[in-house]
Amino acid sequence: MTELLKKLVLTSGVSGREDKIREVIKAEAEKYADEIIIDPMGNLIAHKRGKGKKIMFASHMDEIGYFVTFIDEKGLIRVGNVGGINTLSASYSEVVSERGVCGVALPSDSNEVPKVDALCIDIGARSKKQAEKRVSIGDYFVHAPHIKRLYGNIYTGRPLDNRIGCLVLLEALKNVKPTDNDLYFVFTVQEEVGLRGAKPVAYRIEPDIGIAIDVTSAGGKPTSPKTKVKIGGGVAIKIKDASVICSYEIVEKMRELCLDSNIKYQDEILLKGGTDTGAIQTAKMGCLVGALSIPTAYIHSTNEMIDISDVKEAIKLTCAIAERI
């Protein structure tokens, strides 16, 4: 596992509070980009200038989590969710605040999968007064970040959605061969709360082609959704998800690039969940879009799972698109 991947996963950044993770990405991106722009929403744009087609890649850097809404008399932290929490997985898991305060996410009733608004956080404080020394209303919590290798190429950790996409984009920025194309590697904010960051960047850049890089649900496990996509089956080429019908010209072109360059790929139709792809396609006057995905099991749980060989194929495809589409 690369040190970069570790750093990307272990640096937290809930939607709307991406400052720390953006700094990590910026430090890496500025080594290879001609210019770095941070827009008013906080999107980070790494630009590699060219005179050809304007291609915008987007990988979101935010993650799901919680904002503190109030602290009760017993010192329990009440929270509101940011994005789609898997409450089954969240129950009794470790959480950590932006100030490094650790706690446990508690369901209110231990016999049922809790509704998201029933979750609260126990930081061990015995009173409101004690808790207020360490936590304030508006602080954010995330599920404790971690990453480890399981077996062979299989890694588990959190948040792999979508730091693994950020890794793909940074590696592509680093490894892309000289090309005429005008390349924008964008690390977007607030994807988990409704694809909010990608739209204004696409409005600013007005790309000819937009390509999102994100995780997609993988099947083949007892609990996984009905899908053909498998971990270890190669990079997934998105055809459709709940936010977008990808431009079929781009889907076909991506398949061709994979065949030409011996990149292992699989087709993806994701029935639930959206990606920045939809926001980019419909910004301003619109553009052609596609997306490549890293097959991931247990998305939004405290243990997301990937096959690192798929990540390598995703990097190759991203470079191929940048150089030759």
């Binding site: 019908i245 419909t282 301003k284 006057m285």
Partner: peptide
């Protein structure tokens, strides 16, 4: 599938 098309044209 989202009613975006006409708005993109209107923008142009």
């Amino acid at each position: 599938t989202g009613k975006c098309g006409a708005a993109l044209s209107a923008c142009r």
